[in-house]
């Protein structure tokens, strides 16, 4: 029996991809940084009060094969509705309930006419900081890349 999603399928794959992108960005954001960028929460009704739980993380055998259970991670989820009727969902890593509420509010607002303003003030800075953080790690890794020189092979003698 298929379970039907509660929300009507998002009209096109482009907007779905956009929503997935901001939900992921919000989930990965540092709770404190998100609070700095988006300090004031608008009025909202909680549909699912923020709840701390565990998600079983799965890997694949050999990286490509059958799934197996690797271990759990802490996740906090929340669902809420704004006065305008927009519904926001969040599943965020860690145990910060404020993070989950804030991410759900941003998810809801991003579906309203405030999306562009919010993108500029919240999502763009978060994205830029994440890219910078990743680039920094990648640059340090690149500096440890080895160039091997073959000195002599056994069969050369």
């Amino acid at each position: 029996m298929m379970q039907t999603p509660l929300e009507a399928a998002t009209p096109n794959s482009e907007s779905l991809a956009a929503r997935k992108a901001w939900m992921g960005l919000l989930a990965r954001a540092k709770p404190g940084r998100l609070a700095d960028l988006f300090p004031e929460l608008p009025a909202h009704d909680l549909l699912r009060a923020p709840e701390i739980g565990a998600v079983m993380v799965r890997g694949r055998i050999g990286g490509t094969g059958q799934p197996f259970n690797l271990g759990e991670m802490t996740v906090t989820r929340c669902a809420l509705r704004l006065g305008s009727g927009a519904v926001g969902h969040a599943h965020v890593q860690g145990r910060d309930k404020g993070h989950a509420v804030r991410a759900a509010v941003v998810d809801a607002l991003m579906q309203t006419n405030q999306a562009e303003a919010l993108r500029a003030t919240v999502l763009v800075p978060l994205q830029a900081e994440e890219v910078a953080r990743r680039a920094n790690r990648a640059a340090k890794a690149a500096a440890t890349k080895v160039e091997f020189f073959t000195l002599v092979r056994g069969e050369d003698q």
């Binding site: 509660l6 549909l47 009060a49 519904v87």
Partner: peptide, 11 residues
């Protein structure tokens, strides 16, 4: 708005 999202536990 879908009523399915309402009516859960509050606490």
């Amino acid at each position: 708005m879908n009523d399915a999202l309402l009516g859960g536990f509050v606490d």
